[in-house]
């Protein structure tokens, strides 16, 4: 597992993955938008507003999945002190925050015509809002320390504490019978959505996942570069602009 911490290998692997993720994102988004906006029927009750689902549901799935990624990475920060894990968690957090916001915003836009209100304090909405706060808390705590590296353990512990919220989000619609509809996708007796609507839904989920991998890869590379620059600066090798201060050691292949 620690072999992936080697910077050269990390950059080689990410160089291989990033184009695939970018291509997958482009293709799946185009297909997903075509199926979502043109080739799928409008709902018999909701009309065209049902198409909000093709953004809302994948965004919700990403919000939860990215938090799980952060929690998994945080666990490996605490257990194995894996050098890439902290970078992964830090790089993923703003993306997760953005998807959580997208999920809440599209849900609100969907709620207004369907439920007649922008927001209700139902269990699902509240637990996703808590997820939003957890992302903010995680990001704030991860940047709250002056000493570099000092934040990694507290932030990881916070991320793991927040995991209790994930099952609450998933099962909130089963435990409390409120306005948000119950699970329709992941259930024992199979999805309860029409197949024509499932196609764009899965395409958009794939597209969002590719987007996440792409952005995560790019952010990890820049975090990595920033960490190296910080190191170089603290050793007095470069100025803050990255200009070498006199003789420099050999740069590792990157």
């Amino acid at each position: 597992m620690h072999r992936f911490a080697n910077p050269t290998r990390f950059f080689r692997i990410s160089n291989a993955i990033l184009p695939v993720a970018a291509a997958g994102f482009a293709v799946l988004t185009v297909l997903g938008l075509y199926y979502g906006l043109i080739a799928s029927p409008a709902d018999y009750q909701q009309g065209d507003t049902v198409r909000i689902m093709y953004i809302h549901v994948p965004a919700a799935y990403m919000a939860v999945m990215i938090y799980a990624v952060i929690a998994g990475a945080s666990a490996s920060v605490l257990i194995w002190k894996h050098p890439l894990a902290e970078i992964t968690a830090r790089a993923a957090a703003p993306v997760g925050l953005a998807f959580t916001f997208l999920c809440l915003a599209t849900g609100s836009l969907w709620g207004k015509p369907m439920w007649g209100t922008w927001w209700v304090w139902d269990a699902r909405l509240t637990s996703v809002l808590i997820l939003f706060f957890l992302y903010i808390g995680y990001m704030t705590l991860a940047n709250a320390f002056d000493e570099p590296g000092r934040a990694s353990k507290p932030a990881a512990i916070l991320a793991l504490v927040g995991v209790v919220n994930l099952p609450i989000i998933k099962f909130s619609v089963d435990w409390w019978n409120t306005l948000h509809q119950p699970a329709a996708l992941i259930r024992l007796d199979g999805p309860t959505i029409a197949p024509e609507m499932l196609t764009p839904l899965f395409l958009m989920m794939g597209s969002f996942t590719c987007f996440f991998i792409l952005v995560l890869g790019l952010r990890m590379r820049s975090e990595y570069a920033a960490a190296r620059l910080r190191n170089a600066m603290s050793r007095g090798v470069t100025t803050p602009d990255g200009v070498p201060n006199g003789p420099v050691g050999r740069e590792p292949a990157a």
Partner: peptide, 15 residues
């Protein structure tokens, strides 16, 4: 968690 952090008490509220 906030021991040693900047603006610790405000951060506690957030967490």
């Amino acid at each position: 968690l906030v021991l040693g952090a900047r603006r610790a008490s405000l951060l506690t509220a957030l967490l």
